[in-house]
């Protein structure tokens, strides 16, 4: 439990900045890819229980499309890019140029699946490389995996490492959405960065901040 109670407001600000820089680059990449304005929210750094973590993306039962990747290297962790079906459909339509596409077809449509996976790949790649530049740490993403399923089933996968140490997760959450579309909180795209417990002090140290500072 120790690693969470040791966090000061400086640490939280650093994590927020990480979310800012990472998601900022990812939003730029998304904007270029779709040739659209993309709006990004101020990142949220929260210490949440596992159940609250599910609530962040609409509740454990909620169906989403999620790209998951493991971060390997000096500061391992998990990363999710979670899209609600509505927004995933919009993105896929634009990428494959098929206005007829509906979300139900995703399972049978290889091009759509591949497009969504590539979208996750590009976005998480730009998030991570900016994070790597910022901290000077070597971070390597695994090949991203795509899954369309219940939030609870997907997110709990990223909590496995953490759950051995704690009943809480520190999550760096940034929401993205298209500039001209008004969406409620639960239908926005979210980036979740979940550093492994041991990675926190590595990240802080790389930025010259001491653990207990």
């Amino acid at each position: 439990m120790g690693f969470i109670s040791n966090l000061s407001s400086i640490h939280l600000d650093i994590l927020k900045e990480i979310g800012n820089i990472g998601a900022g680059h990812a939003a730029t990449a998304l904007s270029k890819l779709l040739n659209k304005k993309i709006d990004m929210q101020v990142p949220n750094v929260k210490i949440v229980t596992f159940d609250e973590m599910m609530e962040l993306s609409g509740g454990a039962d909620h169906v989403v499309a999620a790209v998951f990747l493991r971060i390997e290297g000096e500061a391992p962790g998990s990363m999710f890019f979670v899209l609600p079906p509505e927004q995933a459909t919009v993105f896929i339509k634009q990428m494959i140029g098929d206005e007829e596409f509906t979300f139900d077809q995703l399972g049978d449509n290889e091009i759509a699946t591949s497009a969504l996976q590539e979208l996750g790949n590009i976005l998480s790649g730009s998030y991570l490389s900016s994070l790597s530049d910022f901290t000077g740490l070597a971070l390597y993403p695994s090949v991203p995996a795509l899954s369309v399923d219940m939030v609870g089933a997907i997110i709990s996968y990223g909590l496995i490492e953490l759950s051995q140490v704690s009943d809480y997760a520190i999550v760096i959450d940034t929401a993205l959405n298209e500039d001209d579309v008004e969406l409620s909180e639960s239908v926005r795209g979210h980036f979740f960065l979940l550093p492994d417990p041991d990675s926190f002090h590595i990240i802080f140290e790389s930025l010259g901040v001491r653990d207990n500072g």
Binding site: F50, A60, S156
Partner: peptide
Amino acid sequence: VGIADMNVVSAPNRIRTSGLGSC
């Protein structure tokens, strides 16, 4: 019942947990 949680129930009530993945 939430994640990493437990509970008991008696009829007519039911008991549910949502979003089991690897759990």
